[in-house]
Design a binder for these strands. Sequence first.
DNA 1: TTTGTATTGAAAATGAATATCAAAAGCATA
DNA 2: TATGCTTTTGATATTCATTTTCAATACAAA
Lengths: 143, 143
Amino acid sequence: MILEKKKAFNSFAAEKGLRSTRQRDIILDIFLSTHQHISVEELYLKIKSSNPGIGHATVYRTLKLFAESGLAREIHLHDGQTRYEHAMEGEHHDHLVCTGCDTIIEFEDETIEKLQREIASRHGFKINNHKMEIYGLCSDCRK
Amino acid sequence: MILEKKKAFNSFAAEKGLRSTRQRDIILDIFLSTHQHISVEELYLKIKSSNPGIGHATVYRTLKLFAESGLAREIHLHDGQTRYEHAMEGEHHDHLVCTGCDTIIEFEDETIEKLQREIASRHGFKINNHKMEIYGLCSDCRK
DNA sequence: TTTGTATTGAAAATGAATATCAAAAGCATA
DNA sequence: TATGCTTTTGATATTCATTTTCAATACAAA
Ligand SMILES: [Mn+2]
Ligand SMILES: [Mn+2]
Ligand SMILES: [Zn+2]
Ligand SMILES: [Zn+2]
């Protein structure tokens, strides 16, 4: 699974004429070892702990590449930081965000997706992507 | 309609013990005269053209107040700027955003809203608010 | 190797939003 | 109307995430 993703990114890089670098390998490894909606800064710190030489800008640049390759998805919740999550071909989900404890629950709802497509086509739009976030309090935080 | 909104904000201000100031009056007037998803900077420039004295910070502060009073709603699309739109009691809508020309189409879909409530309750969440944006190309931009 | 180009990282720059704080304005009271 | 207290304002500085710059370095093709 992780190996497949690495291969996928390598083909993407090859097609784009990108060079293979130590930094990108390291960042990819560490990104793939994380779970769930990690912020750039969080990932940067994680990377730096084992690879002090790697710079801020490189992490930013590389995560953009991952997103472009389809390996990662950029997320914007409302704390002013860009986050990334793993993305797999054809998979999509939305988020239920607890504003109390920052827990994020992922969900999929094909009925909603279908309604979205209908709304878009009714207005002559060709959907590229969408986002849907439901903010509220989880059961723990309501106690 | 505009008058009602002004009254509503004035009662909100009164209840909160806020003073009534020339600046807030002006900003409210101009905000109410605009349409659709204006960015803070756009509004600031509009305001400055007739009222050069008013400062940046005051516009930011005042828009926050409008949102708090329920008069305005804060919007975050993905250009890194906060936008505000008029909000009316109990009204809610979502957005279809053209990434070609920045046109925004508003829509409401009660079926989707209901499904959202179901999803939330299935996970024990109490919804506070939500956002849903569909990004794509409008018919003009696809030509 | 050599050579041309892509990549990197430190540092500076950007841009939106917020904080600071002295001066000005609002308002209750005398 | 004048006084005094408190809020508000606006210039400016600051913060913070992200991007840009650019010289040094690394990659890969020949
Ligand atoms: Mn997710
Ligand atoms: Mn709207
Ligand atoms: Zn919670
Ligand atoms: Zn368009």
